Amino acid sequence: MITFIIAVFLLLTTPGPGVLTLAGVGSAYGYRHGFRYLIGLLIGQNIVAIAVATGLAAILLAAPIIRNILLVLSVSYMFFLAYKIAFSGSKIAFIGASKSPGIRGGIILQIINPKAYVVNTSLFTGFSIWPDSFTTEITFKFFALNLIWLCIHILWLAMGVTIHRLSLSARIQHFINISMAIALIAVVGLALWAQFYAN
Rank of each mutant, 00 (worst) to 15 (best):
Y117C: 04
F124N: 12
T121L: 14
V119T: 15
G126I: 09
G126M: 10
V118L: 15
Q110D: 08
A93C: 11
T121F: 11
L123E: 06
S122V: 14
L123C: 04
S122F: 07
F94P: 02
P101A: 05
L123D: 01
I112T: 05
I103E: 02
T125R: 08
N113S: 05
G96H: 12
S98T: 15
N113P: 08
T121G: 14
K91Q: 15
I92V: 15
P101C: 01
Y117W: 11
I111W: 09
L123P: 07
F94W: 12
A93M: 12
I103G: 01
G96P: 06
I92K: 11
T125K: 04
G96N: 15
G105L: 06
R104Y: 03
K99W: 00
Y117P: 01
A97P: 01
P114H: 04
Y117E: 02
G106R: 10
K115F: 02
N113R: 02
G106P: 12
G105V: 08
N120Y: 00
I103P: 05
T125V: 04
G126T: 10
T125C: 02
G96S: 15
I92H: 04
G105Q: 03
I111E: 01
T121C: 01
G102F: 09
K115R: 10
I108R: 06
T121V: 10
I107K: 01
S100Y: 05
G102I: 09
K99C: 01
S98I: 10
N113L: 03
